[in-house]
Design a protein around this nucleic acid. Structure first.
Lengths: 107, 107
DNA sequence: CCTATTGGTAAGCAGTAACTTACGGTAAGT
DNA sequence: ACTTACCGTAAGTTACTGCTTACCAATAGG
């Protein structure tokens, strides 16, 4: 059920940029913000959403906080996508074998 | 780049319900709405967003319109998820081999 | 200590998103 | 033709979201 929060978190373009910055590895808040056209507090807020969605984690060193992707969160999101992907494929196949033109899978 | 619209489309819970109803196959607007706690026009609006995101297609028969998932849209979304999944895995592995504790992949 | 660095939180604001009701438009049935 | 069923669109309202500025807490270093 947590994939809902994950999808919501990744819906916003800015927040998705934050997320994608972390694909390569951990980064501090300042580093992340320096690559974005919004203020640092805005980045903090985005990080909070991503964290509550389980997509990222935090590690403190000194006054800095390094954020990085959480494997569990990614797995959950991936499982959701793979899940309906498999189901949809099965539906497509079943419809095709019935000769249905219902499906707009070709459109 | 269209995965952005797809993620935005799937972010809303009601719209995600609409989407998930279509996994099993094509449905008419009325059928979809009857399983949801919102009005039919609201469903129409959600369908439009999903359609513009490339996730669903439409087929008209009589006065009814059957909506169903579009394979291409699903592929795009799946590719996005698989993409950062692979990259993230590589990053995790590299970090682990460096002995980094940067990554919060375990948290 | 005092200051600088780093970053989270609060308050406020503007934009947008989701919903409703009301209406229009098309196809099927009588 | 008239009615019914089905559905999209328009207009308006409410609520939320993302942003900014201002402020505060914690650590590091002189």
């Amino acid at each position: 059920m947590a994939y809902g929060e994950a999808l919501t978190a990744l819906a916003d373009p800015t927040r998705r940029s934050v997320f994608e910055q972390l694909i390569g590895g951990a980064r501090s808040v300042g580093e992340i913000a320096s690559d974005l056209p919004v203020s640092r507090p805005a980045v903090s807020q985005h990080l909070r959403v991503l964290k509550e969605a389980g997509l990222i984690g935090e590690r403190r060193v000194g006054t800095r906080r390094y954020y990085s992707l959480r494997r569990d969160g990614l797995v959950e999101l991936r499982n959701y996508v793979e899940g309906f992907w498999e189901e949809a494929l099965a539906s497509f196949k079943a419809a095709a074998e019935r000769g249905d033109k219902d499906e707009a899978s070709d459109g």
